[in-house]
């Protein structure tokens, strides 16, 4: 199985919240038909400094804000070219200083379809093109209007992604993707709020977002090691004003760099371990977070006959 790069969306999202997207929706790996890869994941992210608009600062009344995510993730091979992915995260937030209470709960269910229309051999290399569509839905009535300690933003999202993968000599690869994320309006518990003007409504217009992701490194059946650059840009939204609290429709931008590893057990190839770490290097209205994550996955063959995991992903 090819299973790695979980929790990518988590890196860039807002000041203290996580929004874990489906686990392998950023990579160029597909499960074979009828194979179902599933497993638990854990991620920890924290920040002390954040960007209030473009100004970087700390907040002694929050100290370090941490987010832990416990997730169940899965990927099912509908066919060799089409996979369905899901992610169910439980999120726990905490501030190390001040009086504000950390939050916890089931966050957003995300579902995604990943399709590979083109998979072309060119000399020693192979070029593959992927299209992905998906979305997320809040699973509980959690509090969104309590940033940076909210566990999520409560927005329903729909997203589309185009991804290109170049794989050389069955060892080296580079993957690039661009994503557009539609975010539905959210509803607050209060009936007025101030953005860059007063709004007399409990509805918040959420700006959409774009994202790009570039990853490159070494990839074989047994081991993946890669470096990642990720950017999340909110198309609109407003800046946090001085000493204000963050708000769900802030203009949240972040650029993160990181590394990821995946290791497949030779003795038991159905079992794989993944791990990664990343750091936000530039941002706006987000925490400068460090993130580390790990997961264990197991591949089940849901077809009648014995089936091998498609490890070549080609």
């Amino acid at each position: 199985m090819k299973w790695n790069k979980l929790f990518l969306l988590q890196l860039y999202l807002c000041i203290g919240i996580t929004q874990v997207s489906a686990q392998t929706d950023m990579d160029a790996i597909l499960m074979e038909k009828n194979a179902f890869c599933v497993g638990p994941g854990y991620s920890y992210s924290s920040w002390k400094n954040y960007w209030e608009g473009t100004k970087k600062r700390e907040n002694l009344n929050l100290g370090t804000v941490s987010t832990q995510t416990f997730a169940i993730m899965g990927n099912y091979g509908i066919s060799n070219k089409l996979n369905a992915l899901f992610n169910i995260p439980y999120v726990v937030t905490k501030a190390s200083a001040g009086t504000l209470k950390g939050q916890q709960g089931l966050q957003d269910l995300s579902l995604m379809l990943k399709y590979r229309p083109i998979n072309q051999k060119i000399g020693d290399a192979r070029l593959a093109v992927f299209g992905l569509i998906g979305g997320s839905l809040p699973m509980t009535n959690y509090l969104a209007d309590f940033l940076p300690l909210s566990i999520g933003l409560r927005s329903k999202t729909a997203m589309a992604r185009l991804m290109v993968d170049y794989y050389y000599n069955s060892k080296w690869f580079a993957t690039a993707s661009a994503t557009y994320v539609y975010r539905s309006n959210i509803e607050l518990d209060r009936n007025s709020y101030y953005t860059d003007r007063m709004v007399l409504s409990n509805q918040v217009e959420m700006p959409n977002a774009t994202s790009f992701n570039i990853r490159a490194g070494y990839r074989t059946q047994w081991l993946i090691a890669e470096a990642i650059l990720n950017n999340w840009t909110t198309q609109g939204g407003f800046d946090i004003t001085q000493n204000n609290m963050p708000f769900p429709s802030n203009r949240m931008n972040a650029t993160a760099v990181g590394v990821n590893m995946k290791y497949v057990m030779k003795r038991l190839p159905q079992l794989s371990l993944t791990g990664g770490a990343s750091n936000v290097i530039a941002g706006r209205n987000v925490g400068q977070s460090f993130n580390a994550n790990a997961a264990v996955f197991y591949v089940l063959d849901l077809s009648k006959k014995e089936k091998k995991v498609n490890t070549s992903n080609n």
Partner: peptide, 28 residues
């Protein structure tokens, strides 16, 4: 889980999300 149902679910999700109007009508 049935692949068809997943596909349909995701399509419905995407459709309902994108058809939502974003413009807000304020109280007064």
């Amino acid at each position: 889980m049935k692949p068809q149902s997943i596909f349909i679910y995701i399509l419905v999700l995407a459709c309902t999300a994108t058809s939502c109007k974003k413009e807000i009508t304020e109280q007064t």
